[in-house]
């Protein structure tokens, strides 16, 4: 019988892979930000899962709360750079910035 945690890790690794491939494939900055969000969701799940598996949920929760706040600030800064670039170049395409 496979352990439930290993199956969860399997799904988390797939989620992380989706986010990473979105950052690598897409040339649109907005799409890349969404990829970043998906990756950080995978990390959040991984931390909570590890906490649950080692009977240490409260430490994992304390970390997860900080992670969510940091994620919000990072995305805000990223969006503000995106607006700035949109104002200067009139496009969100990374290739047009080069």
């Amino acid at each position: 019988m496979t352990n439930i945690f290993s199956i969860d890790w399997y799904f988390i690794s797939l989620l992380f892979f989706i986010g990473l491939s979105c950052i690598l494939i897409s040339k649109n900055m907005f799409k890349q930000l969404i990829g970043l969000e998906i990756m950080s969701k995978a990390c959040l799940l991984a931390v909570i899962l590890s906490g649950a598996a080692t009977n240490n949920v409260n430490l994992a929760q304390a970390i997860a709360i900080s992670m969510i706040l940091i994620e919000a600030i990072v995305i805000t800064v990223g969006l503000s750079i995106l607006i700035k670039i949109y104002k200067t170049t009139g496009s969100l395409d990374l290739r047009k910035l080069l």
């Binding site: 909570i48 906490g51 649950a52 994992a60 929760q61 997860a64 709360i65 969510i68 706040l69």
Partner: peptide
């Protein structure tokens, strides 16, 4: 489902 309600609410 992982019994971590605080993180879930924040999320």
């Amino acid at each position: 489902t992982f019994a971590s309600p605080w993180a879930a609410v924040f999320e």
